[in-house]
Design a protein around this nucleic acid. Sequence first.
DNA 1: ATGTTGACGGTTG
DNA 2: TCAACCGCCAACA
Length: 133
Amino acid sequence: MVSFYAKVYEVVRCIPTGKVSSYGRIARMLWAPQASRAVGYALRGLRHRIHDPDYSDIPWHRVVSKEGIIRVGVQGEEDLLQVELLQTEGVEVGAPKYRVDMKKHLWKGLSPEEVGELIEQLELLKEAATDRA
DNA sequence: ATGTTGACGGTTG
DNA sequence: TCAACCGCCAACA
């Protein structure tokens, strides 16, 4: 089985520049409507892997809360990296609550069929990898 | 097997 | 709008 995190990463890769999605929407696309929290957990480590070719192409910063609020200040100290990355892409972020206008930037998302194809490709890749081993 | 850990989300006051 | 509370879930030890 392909891990839940791997599926999350594939969907996030599909978010176009200038658009954002939410943890809950990603979870629903993956037929796990209650797993929004797990989606966030899957994404949290990516910011430290910008030099890892396997993960550096995942636009983790394009995922925010349902209301468009960006989480800054992990571990006490304020971290505005996500805000800066979004602004670079032309997404305006309101202060002081660091909020994105979801009316304007929300990504439509993938259809169930598209998600199905995505997962299928992942399964094939994994199969090929295990065969090689 | 079991408990812990949260980039969440819905509800309530 | 805001915050406190609570239920969920996948990964990891």
